[in-house]
Write a protein that binds this DNA or RNA. Structure first.
Lengths: 223, 223
DNA sequence: TAGATTGTTAATCGATTAACAATC
DNA sequence: TAGATTGTTAATCGATTAACAATC
């Protein structure tokens, strides 16, 4: 309808977050089907494999602007490319990680991120015992060097894996240095300037959902 | 209105997941305010601290059946207890962890879970080099012993931290042994029987949201 | 051509926000 | 009493689901 007119201005027409969260699931399925030798796939097939509805899958894929053929379905390669393109996973991004503890080290060692174009290029910590050592081949620098290195290397993504009490001050350090997006794994909410993208990954929040689901199922079993 | 009549039957009136995910955030704030010496808190104060709206906070707290006093606000201790009670965090739950890799080890070592009543009591792996060693004081057993130990110890929660290709078979093992809820950190969706509670923690899904937010902000900056 | 599947518009459902009455 | 804040009902907004036309 009124798409073309605005185009550049207001046409960013908010993408539903639930849809965004499902795209990687499709992406993974598509890759495995491609490896298994398939070349086309229908919404119904995707929906069945993932316990979703075909309508939902179609609606989700619509926003990537991929298109399929009636009776045949979508070309898997094209669909993979459309999702990659839509999410920006076809271009590389570099990230710094702050807080080289258990979780931080696990994330540094996780091989999966590069599939999505994300590279953790270095880590930072304030613990003298860790500074200048390496974890899975990534150097751990003194947190004091963060600001300078962010500026020099123009890194715009920060992964935050510090204990709760250091989270806000670390976030401040990062944003003052020029980090524009923070993936926050610390168990506390951080407040940043409105132009900073913050993605919270709080295990307590997920555990709340899990806990409640468990108690609901338990209640249902009794009644 | 028609609350009391049904009560036991259909009155489980679906709790919104977004609300569930915010409760732990309130919980953490409340604990820190309590430690700081406060005894009462209003919705407005909570909302301001967390960049939410007062109405939303009030609506969220309503479902825990906590009640406040006009002009004063909520009693912090009571509110903490109400949230704990609502989420079932006042009773202990025991969990087994399957897959003692980087992430699995980080979760075993994470001290925060006990605050929510969750105890990882043992881990399992198929790697002979890991079997019968300990990580952060928790024993790692042969995955072959999982089934027997789940039955004997009546553990109902499983934390899944295996690579994608082992995720589904590990989940099957767990549910066949009697695990009723799976917290899945593996980078793939698992399909379980409808009576099994599954909570997915897929980093790729979160990264998709982060990636898109970043590209939206970048687009806005240009225009 | 017939039938399966896509693409798109409309209807429903659920969460958020607004409005306002109750109350300390 | 006056005013701030809770509690609750109504309005809005957004996501999901349904319906159906278009098309290979």
């Amino acid at each position: 309808m009124k798409n073309d007119p605005a185009e550049n201005q207001e046409s960013i027409k908010a993408i539903p977050e639930p849809t965004l969260r499902r795209l990687p699931i499709y992406y993974q399925l598509l890759k495995s089907r491609l490896n298994a030798g398939s070349s086309e796939i229908s919404c119904t097939t995707i929906a069945d494999a993932l316990h979703l509805t075909a309508i939902q899958v179609r609606k989700d894929l619509e926003i990537t602007e991929a298109s399929g053929k009636p009776k045949v379905g979508y070309n898997i390669k094209e669909l993979i490319a459309a999702i990659e393109n839509f999410l920006g996973w076809n271009s590389k991004s570099e990230a710094f990680l702050v807080g080289a503890g258990n979780l931080g080290s696990a994330l540094i060692g996780y091989q999966g991120f590069k599939e999505y174009g994300l590279m953790i290029i270095a880590a930072f910590d304030n613990n003298p015992a860790k500074i200048n050592t390496s974890v899975y081949g990534k150097r751990i620098f003194d947190i004091k060097k963060l600001s300078d290195m962010v500026r020099r290397m123009k890194v715009s993504i920060g992964i935050l894996t510090v204990p709760a009490q250091y989270a806000q001050e670390s976030a401040n350090l990062m944003t003052e240095a020029g980090i524009r997006a923070i993936w926050n794994f610390s168990p506390t909410k951080i407040i940043c300037r409105p132009d900073i993208v913050v993605q919270h990954e709080n295990l307590a929040c997920s555990l709340a959902v899990l806990s409640k689901k468990i108690s609901e199922v338990a209640a249902r079993r009794i009644s």
